[in-house]
Design a binder for these strands. Structure first.
Lengths: 343, 343
DNA sequence: CTACAAACTGGGAGCGCTTCCAATCATTCC
DNA sequence: GGAATGATTGGAAGCGCTCCCAGTTTGTAG
């Protein structure tokens, strides 16, 4: 325990000196790449401890051409969308997956042009070893980032028209089917849907899942309104639906937020939920439990999305070539749908 | 426009070569540190453009001992707390403030021991130029990070017992006073409060603000329950309050989430809001608009918190020595409190 | 005891950039 | 016209680390 804290942190040379070995040996001992005899290794470890040595990441990065950082880029410009609990959960999942490694997480909000430029910059200057990219709209030029850059890109959710080499996605279509089937089983028949913006793959997939299930049930799938995944949008869409299809008896909203809006609109219109109209959402965000009645919904494993993206990226950096991953969804029945079939 | 994209990005030397100048001049031109004649500067800029040159951050960091990254560390272990929209908004604010600089944002969840260790590591190895630290509990050893490290630390919110050198905080005490005064003015008299965990400065400050206002109004401030800022906690605390102080006619909950819980508990107990019992929250998160009735609350400028922390940190890195900043709050009246005084 | 393979070791050359400094050039002022 | 002044310039020394490679040591078999 030396009293005076050094104003400058010790370098590898100092460690080597103290351990009585050459810098090369010290380096090898620290990175435990072989070819170091046991006693010298021990001496180095001791010196490291005594000196409180921490390798300088910049120097290491310069020498190895790997920086020890991954970036999460979220292509959203609206604070509202990012502020959603969704991304917080993803980030949490990523952090957990990164905890045991010594990678660092860099966050880029790439929605606005400045952010996208920043992301480009990061990629081109190799400030990160890999990228996780989320929330791309159909026309987002960032979708091509993957091809342009030497750095591997893992997508969270698929971009609209292309199938990226690496991605983790939720089984949106299957989940939507689950939701719709649930409505059908509960005895609802005149089922409508509120979709997200169809420029988003998620939105399209969920819409397709709805159509799938309706077709299987032999029901018409024509009661449709589009919104933007937001609560306000959901409320407006619900109002439009009520106007055009006053006979509807259930609605599948492609997000909990929109479902919450729908709930609000239904109450305003004096329709009882779940008695007269059943409502089901998607996501199972905290919101779903704050509505009245609480939302029946489809749970997507958001945190797992983060962890799995990270795992995939790390394994790629590690040399393996994983295949895309689709995470399963699960129905969560709460109060906004009837649970028993009426005969 | 060369056809073949280079497998390796160009270096400063190549730029210099192409521009017909020395590396030093190229460097100076690029960083526009003076002493470069106009023609050479132009030549360098042209070469940079033609080659698509981007400086290597690691090399630069190694040479300058500045890495171009700041970290946001959030000391929370519960996913639930981080998943709150609050942090997402802070992050958004930070990103916006960082957009125009070429700093990068590194995110560390430092609640669990692994995360804290990682933060230490980052600091000690100078992987970041500065730190923003949020959500410290009273006893968090990270509070001393500021003294230990050569890197400047800006606190978001104050730690409990110490006054850090640099911080940005919301005027929690003043905001709580605002909230309580509003209840008093609306004619409520038997006012209770649900505090957050008093090991958090925010919670304590809001509690004090409540006491302030009650004292000024000459009302007793003895109806108190403590919770954990969560909705469930708020509901439980409200239930306890109703049990112990059945005569209460209003409650100030120190967070919107707790207020939402309180609302739920009140409905369960059959008390009408705002008629029989007034409820006011704090934060003005999205939640506040999703409750029924919508929450009257105190708005704190969360995004601004992020921007201002960033601004402060950058100015410190720039050599200036700013003073702490307290952000103002503002009352937002919605449906959970009566608006007119009854006589 | 010699020959040879295997296991270590440390010197040294970078990685790409900044920055000090001595040298060069252009100006300006008597 | 020449010296003094200041603006430019480029050579070179690092920043701290990795890793190749030639040299040394150790061990083993013949």
């Amino acid at each position: 325990m030396d009293a005076a804290p050094p104003d400058r942190s010790p370098t590898l040379d100092e460690v080597a000196l103290r351990a009585g070995v050459s810098r090369s040996v010290a380096s090898r001992a620290i990175n435990n790449s072989g070819n170091v005899s046991a006693p010298k290794r021990a001496a180095v470890q001791r010196a490291v401890r005594e000196l409180g040595y921490v390798p300088n990441p910049s120097a290491r990065a310069l020498a190895t051409n790997r920086v020890g950082a991954v970036v999460l880029a979220v292509a959203t410009d609206v604070p509202g969308i990012f502020a959603d609990a969704f991304f917080a959960q993803v980030i949490y999942g990523i952090s957990v997956a990164l905890e045991r490694t010594d990678f660092t997480l860099t966050l880029v909000l790439a929605g606005r042009p400045e952010g996208a430029a920043k992301l480009q910059q990061i990629v081109r200057s190799r400030r990160a070893d890999g990228i996780m990219l989320m929330n791309l709209h159909g026309d987002d030029p960032l979708a091509r980032l993957a091809e342009q850059s030497a750095v591997p890109v893992v997508f969270g959710g698929r971009p609209l028209r292309t199938e990226p080499r690496w991605y983790v996605d939720t089984d949106n279509r299957g989940g939507a089917r689950l939701a719709t089937e649930h409505l059908v089983e509960a005895g609802y028949r005149r089922i409508a849907t509120i979709t997200g913006p169809l420029s988003l793959d998620v939105a399209e997939a969920r819409y397709r899942g709805f159509q799938d299930a309706m077709a299987v049930a032999g029901l018409p799938a024509g009661r449709v309104e589009h919104a933007d995944f937001s609560e306000a949008g959901g409320a407006a869409a619900m109002a439009r639906l009520l106007e055009e299809h006053p006979d509807l008896d259930a609605v599948f909203a492609a997000s909990d937020n929109m479902a919450a809006g729908a709930l609000r609109a239904l109450r305003a219109a004096g329709r009882a939920v779940p008695g007269e109209v059943g409502v089901i959402g998607f996501d199972d965000l905290p919101t779903a439990q704050h509505t009245d009645p609480q939302l029946t919904t489809v749970r997507q494993p958001v945190e797992a999305l983060g962890t799995e993206m990270t795992r995939m990226l790390l394994s790629i950096l590690d040399g393996s070539r994983p295949t895309p991953l689709i995470l399963p969804t699960r129905l969560v029945v709460r109060g906004s749908t009837r649970t028993l079939v009426r005969h």
